[in-house]
Design a protein around this nucleic acid. Sequence first.
RNA 1: GCGAGCGUGGCGGAAUGGUAGACGCACUGGACUUAAAAUCCAGAGUCCGAUAAGGACGUGGGGGUUCAAGUCCCCCCGCUCGUACCA
Length: 840
Amino acid sequence: MKYNPSLIEKKWQKKWSELEAFKAQINYKKPKYYVLEMFPYPSGAIHMGHVRNYTLGDLIARYKKAQGFNVLHPMGWDAFGLPAENAAIENKTHPSTWTYSNIESMRIQLKQMGLSYDWERELTTCDPSYYKFEQKMFLDFYKAGIAYKKETLVNWDPIEQTVLANEQVVDGRGWRSGAEVEKKKMKGWFLKISNFADDLLNEIDNLKDWPDKVKIMQKNWIGKSYGANIKFSIKNSSDKLEVFTTRPDTIFGATFIAISPQHPLAKKIAEKDPKASNFINFCEGQSSKEIDVEKAEKHGYETNLYVYHPFNKRISLKIFIANFILMDYGTGAIFGCPAHDQRDYDFAIKYSLKIIPVIKTNEDLPFIGDGTHINSEFLNGLNTADAIKLSIEKLSNLNIGNEKVTYRIRDWGVSRQRYWGCPIPIIFCDKCGELPVPEEQLPISLPSDVDFNKKGNPLDYHPSWKHTKCPKCNKNATRETDTFDTFFESSWYFARFTDLNPSTAFTTEALKYWMPVDQYIGGVEHAVMHLLYSRFFMRALKHVNSLDITEPFTSLQTQGMVCHQTYKTETEQWLFPSEVMKKNNNYYHIDTQEPVIAGRTEKMSKSKKNVVDPQQIIETFGADTARFFMLSDSPPNRDMEWSDSGVEGSWRFLNKVWKFVTHLPKNINKVELPNNLSENNKELLRIMNTSINEVTKAIDEFHFNIAVASVRSLYNSISSYQISNEDDSAVVFYVTKNLLILMNPMVPHLAEELWQILGNENIIANESWPQAEKSYIEINNVKIPVQVNGKVRAVIEVPKDTNKQDLEEIALNEKNVLKFLNHNPKKVIIIPNRIVNFVI
RNA sequence: GCGAGCGUGGCGGAAUGGUAGACGCACUGGACUUAAAAUCCAGAGUCCGAUAAGGACGUGGGGGUUCAAGUCCCCCCGCUCGUACCA
């Protein structure tokens, strides 16, 4: 009987489903474990990134089940978003039709992988039964002052008459129309994440099982900084200009003032100064992406306004309007101290402004570090910390400034001017103004009869959808036509999985039992936004008494990307790996035989065609091989390279295991170990118990590649074991059973089938995880390297815990050690069971 | 630009500050076969040496701490992720 994955995989998938093997139990007394992988956008087909993500989660889910936990392992669809609208325009299919048919095919693919999901808990975010709850959440936020409306600048495509996402702007032009993108002021809805900034920041330190890199990125994103606000008096005016600075100590180095083009003062200046107005228009036409703002050449407009230096009225500083000052940060105005800030320095050089050093240094300017203050009147002689403290004290004594904490994080703009998203439940009435939709009218569903051939937002030009009655005065009114950012849906789906109750978003008991998610797994690209929004959302929902959770994810693991070599023809056309063949270390096109250039290994992407279709792999080798390779190749949090030969290696290994187990003598099915174990028996049991420890530890530490290596080693030991009597057979049988249990989370179909072939009646999915027995693992002898000056010159084998004296003596009997010890050692370092090092 | 991460044989990777290269891929030799594939056995970081014993070098580059550094510290280079309307 040959290993036939397509046969056995279908068989066991059916069996698991019949037995409801992975259904989360409603037994709130049992210890629980909630495993979750970031749910996918239903793009149409699963890709290798999904296969990796979901294999990692499935391994954990099956492992925790074996350890006796009541496991919740659900799956759903992040189903709103731009691609559905793009497909609607390109293929003339309705976003809903397109999305739901994609979900159908992807669900089939996920099932083919044998993932242990509780499919009864599947959810789809574009379904009104899901999004109706978030309309209620929004209304709660609105009433609690967490949601508000304000003006922002958006990318406007004048030809398409639509707002463009940042990714739809290519080199300043609309991706479809090619028109130069304009900036348009628009009102949109925001959530006050800034109100929670301190708590979001402080609690990061309590996220013990999150990767440090993610925690650091979130801290930096929130960007809490301590400094001062300083009110400058404007010359010949009663107006004040307030600036924020983290370095009030450098105030005597100030040589200019710069304000954002969006600053109210800039607008006031522009009213009387057409050149200023032109400059502001120019700045607003520039990209507002952070990366573009930072990289753009610095431009300033020199106004004819001055402010007085706060501590010396004889000094006045000119006000510039500058493109690199962000209105969203601080007060939208800064004082420039070129000697001690790189950007101010660049600006000062460009506009020939004075540079006054106020910190003593021998280094080149700008000097950013700490030091003794000079040219700074009352701050002279102080270091940075003391100077900051004293300058703030003086400012507040004079009533022209105060200590100030500022955050980099901006409020979350949740409005999108698109059709395929959750409608925002607000009504505008000419008489009564802006009003929340009464709760009994929820959900506000999307209309299905929309036309994507017209320009603009389908919800806006739909003939009837937006027209409604004012809930207060019953006169004609209109609906909000903006829909939510799709991060809205993904900010609470994990809590929804705990109970899909149709009438309420959450049920307290289920939430209390299942939340928080014990293990969350997804791409590192979500390190900040999705994860921070989710953390914020729980706090916001708690604030409006919807639930009582602060942190949604106890442990987080971020997976690396799946990469593959790239191939190009000599005419620079990308090729799929399936179009390329290798012959004598050269690459050729499989059909045309033309030479192919093999490029570097990069993240799999459709544009470079370096993708391998999981469907193909599953059909050729089976899901278990795909899973096994995914786990074996690289540690989960690093990038991995998909290679055909690696897959074949995994396939070969699974075949070996299959052949070995199916060829075990039929009569060896013994449950008990023999009473008198031979040395060989003991050695095999030692290896097995060591493997149990290794695999367990590796899984707990998320080093699944090591777990795989350990399983392979164990197999190598079993398969090379010489069976010479019945006792040997019994031991081999016993060890093989344990091997299968260890392999089950990795290759569940194969494990089930072989388990059954060994004569077991229960499924292996219900077996308990083995515990290593210490008595087998203990060893008598250890090998210790002997070094001379840190270089290994011999290895000695000695009884465990041999004392220092004996170790030195034994080491000094080694010929090769003596060869390098031409005189008495200056120092001898001996750590029992570890090392002997002679220093000469 | 800013923030974060990563860099170890031909390749993927392993290594509580204590024998660098576990486990695998590719490769080489052998067995089996008319032959090939598959399978099994063996070898293998590079260089010197005899294919041995043994030695030198070796974890992106440079410097440092230490009896001992892939691991800790400083500087540099390269690649990747994020950068707020892609998900």
